[in-house]
């Protein structure tokens, strides 16, 4: 089976400081991988390198494209990479404000990716946007409201709808439940699980919340000082961590 994403030797330095070093793994279709580690462990740097927001100093990020098969997204042209970013890839930011257009209605936010790939029928775009609002449990009557009038949890769900409307195959998530109430988090997690299952999505989720990865991720990578120190099945890494730091990380959490 061809991996959907094959990351090989990704290294990113900030001057003398290491962002992330020599990270390699394969992600297969339908897999959800969590990346955990403390602040500054390099997990966000890695995510941004994979998603094309940062250019790594070394390594490859090979994505199995629909048309041309596996391609290194680091060396592909910027228009191609940005096109991937609008079609097969999605990026869910921690702060919904970074991923939404706050001055544009909910429908316009969801419809943008459709229009970006050439849809030109207002009625169809609006129907699809409304359908997606429903899927992320936002009432259809809110379709013309701006996200500024939404709660934090709703904004995050809107961001997810905006990202998934073009049927991407790979979703990058940066602390998707950070900053939300516990009850809102649960609702979002349940929603994400359902979407991942129903759409056959692959996802890479960066978080420091071990409870989030336990519920969402099939696999887990633990990062420290820019390096992957342990990787494996999520429940195995959490319940039987092998590395000293993983053990510390798991034992530091009250109850997951």
């Amino acid at each position: 089976m061809t991996p959907l994403l094959s990351v090989q030797g990704i290294t990113k330095r900030y001057g003398a400081h290491i962002g992330c070093a020599d990270v390699s793994f394969n992600l297969y279709p339908g897999e959800v991988m969590g990346i955990v580690g403390e602040s500054g462990s390099g997990k966000s740097t890695l995510l941004n390198c994979m998603a094309g927001h940062l250019t790594p100093d070394a390594g490859q990020v090979v994505f199995d494209t629909r048309t041309d098969g596996p391609r290194d997204t680091i060396t592909m042209s910027e228009p191609e990479r940005r096109m991937l970013g609008r079609t097969d890839w999605a990026f869910v930011h921690q702060h919904a404000r970074d991923g939404l257009r706050m001055g544009v209605s909910a429908g316009g936010n969801v419809g943008e990716r459709l229009m970006a790939v050439g849809e030109r029928h207002y009625g169809d775009i609006r129907d699809k946007a409304t359908d997606w609002l429903g899927r992320v449990e936002i009432d259809a009557s809110r379709v013309d409201d701006r996200p500024t009038t939404f709660s934090g949890g709703m904004q995050q769900r809107l961001q997810i709808a905006r990202n998934l409307v073009t049927g991407p195959r790979l979703v990058f998530m940066d602390e998707p439940t950070g900053g939300l109430d516990v009850s809102v988090q649960a609702r979002l997690l349940d929603l994400l699980r359902g979407l991942v299952r129903d759409m056959g999505l692959s996802a890479i989720i960066v978080t420091h919340d071990l409870a989030v990865v336990r519920l969402l991720a099939d696999r887990l990578m633990v990062m420290k000082s820019g390096r992957v120190i342990e990787a494996g099945l999520t429940d195995q890494v959490l319940d039987d961590p092998q590395h000293a730091y993983s053990q510390l990380l798991v034992s530091s959490v009250l109850q997951v």
Binding site: G108, E112, M115, R120, I125
Partner: peptide, 8 residues
């Protein structure tokens, strides 16, 4: 795509 968002 953004230009059409304005019209939308």
């Amino acid at each position: 795509g953004l230009m059409h968002v304005k019209l939308y």
